[in-house]
Design a protein around this nucleic acid. Structure first.
Lengths: 121, 121
DNA sequence: ATCACACATGAACATATGCTCATGTCTAGT
DNA sequence: ACTAGACATGAGCATATGTTCATGTGTGAT
């Protein structure tokens, strides 16, 4: 009788309590899963992928980014807002222009890994 | 006059044509950005992050996964469907159970990088 | 001061997403 | 054959998301 359920620990919801208990013990916290998912979610839009990819090589201002990804200035500005919110990009103002760039190497690395994976189906 | 616009190449939509032309030349293709974004989008949900994290260490069946992430069987099954669609997990059937596991190391690496980044704000 | 430009932002809208509920399918045991 | 268990799937619904349109803000040139 090696696979008897243990309601006290696993709440009787599973077929393989040992596995479930182990997995539960190791499971990431809600907040951790939340923030990782939030990060990926921001990366999960083709427009933002293109924008970040363009920013990999150089600092760019909003209207140039708009021209590159072939979108309206407003759309690009909204996307930059969410990218800023997730701290994936930073910006500096210079006169009338706002120059955006990738925030850190970690972000660049993640993006490149995703792009690379996408090319090898 | 180093910054004259070149409508033939940049369509007159930008302030810094040289930069835009360079960025356009290097820009990832639509389909490439699409598939990278699709990959990230699938990773961009806390429930799926938890499920994948649990699968990092061990193969699991559906009802056990449901117990671990504290969700209904149907919800988990739907999520597994999208994970399968993105080829992030694979599964094998054994009698009445379906055993799921991470599809490849690349996926695991991406997930871990995301989780790690999320813990260093 | 006025104007044009670069950018940000709010509202509105269509679409996408994730969950629940109900039901279908397949397998194993009787 | 019949039933129960494990899983898959379709419909429905509430919420989230991305774009456009209109407008607001701040800067520099005239």
């Amino acid at each position: 009788m090696v696979k008897k359920k243990d309601p006290a620990v696993c709440e009787g919801l599973c077929r393989h309590p040992d596995t479930v208990c182990l997995a539960k013990a190791e499971l990431v916290s809600d907040s951790c899963a939340q923030s990782a998912a939030a990060l990926f979610k921001v990366l999960g839009d083709p427009t933002r992928v293109k924008m970040l990819h363009a920013l990999l090589k150089r600092e760019m201002c909003v209207c140039d980014l708009a021209a590159v990804v072939k979108m309206g200035q407003s759309a690009v500005s909204h996307q930059l807002r969410t990218l800023r919110g997730a701290r994936l990009v930073k910006y500096r103002r210079e006169g009338k222009n706002a120059w955006y760039s990738i925030n850190d190497e970690h972000v660049a690395s993640l993006l490149c890994q995703g792009l690379e994976h996408a090319q090898h189906p």
